[in-house]
Every structure is written in C-alpha cells, then in structure tokens.
Design a protein around this nucleic acid. Structure first.
Lengths: 191, 191
DNA sequence: CGGTCTCTTGACGGAGTTCAAAGCTAGTGG
DNA sequence: CCACTAGCTTTGAACTCCGTCAAGAGACCG
C-alpha cells in the first residue's frame, strides 16, 4: 500500500499484520504540485507529513518580507511544525512542495489513536525523532562553525545533485545568506 | 529514589511499580563540580544525562581555538550527543557542568535494556525527543531571524535570571557572538 | 592580598548585506 | 513550436554589523 513508508518502518520495528492495517487506515496520501502549500504561516499544522516522493521545505517570512528556508525534507523524511502540531496553535512557518511531491499525512488525532493501538510505533517515532534531533545538533554546530563559503561547500559536497533540484535562492536562504552573496561564492569556488 | 525524574516521567506516562524498579536500577547518579566534564570532544558519549539539579552545557572548540556553546540544559532536561550515543563514535562536542550539578546517567546498554523491559518508556522518550526537536526548530528560526542585539534581548527576556547563573562569555558564545560584542550590546540596551 | 579569570573599551578591518540594473531561463499561451 | 513574460541569477558599488586585536579594569579564589 505505502511501500516506502512501510519499508522504512520495517527497518526499525516489526509490525503485526493488524498493526499494519491500522497504520494504513491512519494515513492520507496527497499529491502536491510544485509550490503548493500544506499550511501557511499563522495556520495550524494538522498532520505529520512523510515525504513519499519529491521535496518539501519549511520557511517563514522575515520582517523585511524575505522568505527564509529553515529545512528541506526529501524522500523518507517526516516533516511538521511539532509545536503547532502538538498544541494545535498557529504555526510560525509555512510548509511547501519544492517540486511535484507525494506526501502521506498522519493527522494529529489519527496519530494519537494509532500510537495507542499500535504501541510498537512509539519506538519507531522515538528513534526517528531522536535522529532528527541529532541531525539538528550537528547542523547547529555547522552554523556556529562555518563561514558562508564553508557552508556552501559543505552543503554542495554532502548533497551533490540536490542543488540542481532546488532554485538557488532557496539554497541561499537555507544557508543563511542572500542570493547575491551565494552567486558570488559560486563564482569564486567554480560553481 | 529520584523524585525529579520520576515526577517528570509520571507527567507523561504511568509506570508500574516493577517498571519503576527497573528504571531506578538503570540509572547512575553522579555529582559534578563546576567545570567538570562528562566527556570531551573526540571521546564517546556513553550515556543520556538527566539534569537533576544544576546546569550543563555542550560546546566545541572552533578552528581558532575559541569555545562555542551550542546548548544549555537545566533541571529536568536530558542532554547527550545523540549521534555519538547511538553509534558509539567520537563526539564532536564536550559536555560540561556550568555549576555544581547532579546528573542521572542512563548508559547506552542500560537504556536499550530498559526500553525493552519497560516499553511504556518508549512513549516518554518519544515525546521528550519530539519536544527537544520542536525547540530546536524554533531556535533555528531565531537564528535566521534575529540580529545579535535581538538575540540577546530575546534571550534575556525569555530566561531572566539565567544570565546571572552563567558567565557572560558562555552566553555570548551561545548567542553566536564574541564577548566584546555582547558587552557593547549590554551597554547600549542598558544591561 | 596576588594572580588568574572575566568583563569592558575603542580603533580597525572584513565578511556579508543592500540596492539597482542587466542578463538569463523556463514556463505559458497563442 | 515559437514568442513573451515573469521569475531567477548575476554584477558591481556603497554600506554595516560584527569580529579581531590590544590593553586596561574588575572580580573572584586560593
């Protein structure tokens, strides 16, 4: 039914057929066109989204009206504003498809019920969240440690090909710099 | 036995007496003096640490030899380098007591066994990790959005009193600036 | 009290931003 | 399938925030 997600879960915990059924019933598959939004700044994040195919980004608009991309999510990543999702309060972010994207949405109430019915998934999400947090610890270190140029070099080495998938101004805002400056760096470092 | 941690867990999940016993047996309480290290950059993070009393910080040394503080943890927070902990590889961080601190250490193997024996704790840690991750999403937003001066104002409003607990150069490095510049900001904004 | 750690001050420099304008590219409709 | 347009990228000059360096003033601990 959802081979990518099911394989992903299976690599962490073993589900009973009954559990798998409940999981499938808890999800809603949605296809998004390029630039389509799952929710907008000020709205509530209603689900945790698994990227089945494609790419999502999280961003907000700063006081000067510029978009600032804080995260990307590609295949096999979950993405949500977890504060907005937990408390059902207005989100400070927007969630958008960077390209044509298929997501599996696990809505808040469905998630609660799912975890009660299939406790083995608590373990799956515990591990997933721990890894996401670990990744953000490392990323924080890069932000503290690297200059703009080092950030770009690190990023383009770690995710070669991803650069082609995303417009450069989004990469720039993700790296915490202006598109103009990224352009200058790319000229210096030879694309 | 460990009233702070046990109350903290109880606010999320209900443990059976037997589970509580196993939990207690899995922990090691350690008292640290000011500046004492739990592990050093290049060593392995062997446990997840719960701050029972006091304050920890995570930091690394940048290429110029300057300490950069990436996180603080106070009472009722867990702290670890989760990549080093999961893979048992060398950590890119050091973990240090900012003041006299009492931690409860949950070592990696003990943690594995504990979670197998008491699956209800998977839920506790899933929620805790999700909140930690949510906090890092918000923090990331501040980092993208705020100037140095705004970061300081936000920080000193959000955690009044914490400033007094921690030397200023650690606050500066946490805010991503030099002590000299923080000093200048404090002069401008009236302490 | 003496020495080390911490905080402050000020002059200077550089990484990165801002603004404006021109060149490209890709998607869209005819 | 081409032409047009809107959006993306590049360039360059002026500017600014913040880091660097160096030196002095406190403050804390033995």
């Amino acid at each position: 039914m959802y081979p990518n997600l099911e394989a992903h879960i299976a690599s962490f915990v073993k589900l009973q057929p009954a559990g798998l059924e409940i999981l499938r019933a808890s999800l809603k598959a949605t296809d998004l066109r390029k630039k389509e939004l799952l929710f907008r700044e000020g709205e509530i994040c209603r689900a945790d989204y698994f990227v089945d195919k494609g790419c999502l980004r999280m961003f907000f608009i700063d006081d000067k009206g510029t978009e600032r991309t804080t995260q990307f999510a590609i295949e096999n990543w979950w993405m949500a504003d977890y504060i907005s999702l937990e408390r059902q309060t207005a989100s400070g972010f927007s969630l958008q498809a960077v390209e044509a994207t298929r997501v599996l949405a696990l809505e808040r109430n469905a998630c609660e019920k799912l975890l009660t019915a299939v406790p083995a998934l608590e373990r799956y999400f515990r591990i997933i969240r721990q890894r996401a947090y670990a990744a953000s610890q490392v990323r924080m270190k890069y932000i503290y440690d690297f200059s703009g140029e080092e950030m770009y070099r690190h990023f383009s080495r770690s995710y070669p090909g991803f650069i082609q998938r995303v417009p450069q101004y989004m990469v720039a805002s993700f790296l915490g710099m202006t598109p103009e400056y990224l352009s200058e760096i790319r000229k210096r470092t030879g694309r």
